[in-house]
Amino acid sequence: MDMLTLSHVAKHFGEKQVLNDVCLHVPEHTVFGFVGQNGAGKTTSMKLILGLLACDSGEIEVNGMPVRYGNTATNRFIGYLPDVPEFYSFMTPREYLRFCGEITGMPTKEIKNRSQELLELVGLAEEKRRIKGFSRGMKQRLGIAQALLNRPKLLICDEPTSALDPVGRKELLDILVEAKEQTTVLFSTHILSDVERICDELAFLHDGKIAVQGTMEEVRKIRKATGTELEMEDRQGIEKLRRAFPFLKLIGSHRLLLENPEQLPDILHFLADKKMPVLRIERREPTLEDLFMEVIGK
């Protein structure tokens, strides 16, 4: 079953068309990467899903129910983590989760048990400090706990790792992978390495349209291997190869790139004849970055 579907969704702001005939489907219990450049329309899409903006045309469904602009009933299925979550800084994490649970009508015992469970999940179970003393990464982790408090069927994360350091990003991504057991994660980002690490499926949004969509395996197959890397033991070997085969591209002090695989046998014969030591010959697999740059025409 698809937890989220967008069918032929369009959105204008004045004369600017932000989204144009967007069709998207997000299966249950997946981490779905929603990828696009800054300004591609990702945040606008999130606001439409949350009913904070009205579609000009098209339909959006969450858990099989239509999203309606305004006070939409589908938001009871959704947890939301913005790129910069805000908190009452004078509270501790546990106090903040209790406050959120009380205003949504959760029973006191359930708030206590669920808060403990989530604070353990995000690594804040022993944290007694006020939120005002938290780092950006700690606030993002608390934001995930708050978003999961009411056991949502869909967790929307809008650029959650964009301003985190490498350690904070790793911690957050690990949490999202664990959260997949409880919910479906829609992960909006422009950081392609994060998508490759945790996402089951993804879609590229470009110029207001979905340019590519599928599982990670399907998307990688769209673009063939980008060449073969040769790593030599010394700089002399690099220079000999480049003199014999000028089409080889230097991509490092000891590495060369061969783009045409039909020329590889000739190079291998040359290496064998000259008895040149080689550290590595490896097919270069396409990356999401390669495909994304192709999609946006760079």
Rank of each mutant, 00 (worst) to 15 (best):
T189V: 07
P261S: 02
L258Y: 11
A244P: 07
G214R: 13
K209S: 14
L205A: 10
I191C: 01
A203F: 03
F245A: 09
E229G: 03
P261N: 07
T228N: 09
E285L: 09
F247Y: 15
Q263D: 13
V278G: 02
G208C: 02
K275F: 01
E259M: 09
A272P: 00
K249F: 01
K224L: 08
S253P: 10
V177N: 05
T228E: 06
H254A: 09
H254T: 14
K240V: 05
V177E: 13
L186S: 04
E262H: 13
S253C: 00
I210N: 05
E233P: 02
E262C: 04
R283E: 15
I281Q: 05
T228S: 06
F204R: 01
T226D: 03
F204N: 11
D207A: 11
I222H: 13
L230F: 14
E181R: 15
H254Y: 15
K274C: 08
D266T: 11
K180F: 09
L241D: 04
A203Q: 08
A244G: 11
R242K: 15
P265W: 04
P261C: 03
R243S: 12
E239A: 15
L271T: 13
G237R: 04
A244F: 02
A272N: 11
A272M: 10
R223E: 13
T184M: 03
G237H: 02
P286S: 07
Q263V: 05
R283V: 14
I281S: 02
E218R: 10
N260P: 04
F247P: 04
A225D: 15
T226Y: 02
T228D: 01
D200L: 06
V195W: 11
V185G: 12
A225L: 02
E285V: 00
E181N: 12
R283M: 10
L202H: 07
F187D: 08
K240L: 15
L268Y: 04
F247N: 05
R243D: 10
E231C: 05
K221Y: 00
K180G: 08
P277G: 08
G252S: 12
E196H: 07
K209C: 14
S193M: 03
E218T: 07
L279R: 14
E285F: 01
V185N: 05
P286H: 05
R197S: 06
I210E: 09
G208Q: 11
V219E: 05
D207P: 00
F204S: 04
L257T: 01
